[in-house]
């Protein structure tokens, strides 16, 4: 689980990028608190062949990245 809440762009994407480069996980959960980050991470994730599910919890978002089969 990456907690990127409150961080301004592009830090959340950098954190996801580091994790993906390091261990290329099959599944990765990321918490963010702005739509900008949701959009940016989604764009990055799909470029790395991940599917993204977004759950909205009281104005915060939990993204679940799953590697495409």
């Amino acid at each position: 689980m990456i907690d990127a809440r409150g961080l301004s762009c592009p830090m959340p994407v950098v954190m996801v990028q580091n994790e993906v480069k390091k261990s290329s996980p099959n599944e990765l959960k990321v918490q963010v608190d702005s739509m900008v980050c949701v959009e940016n991470i989604t764009r990055y994730a799909s470029s790395q062949k991940y599917d993204v599910e977004v759950a909205n919890k009281d104005g915060e978002f939990e993204l679940t990245l799953k590697k495409k089969k």
């Binding site: 592009p10 994407v13 990028q17 900008v36 990055y44």
Partner: peptide, 19 residues
Amino acid sequence: SRICMVGGMRDAVMFKDFN
């Protein structure tokens, strides 16, 4: 659109994102 002059080059270099 979140347009940003610095974001353009930054994203291109860091993430190959040309949006």
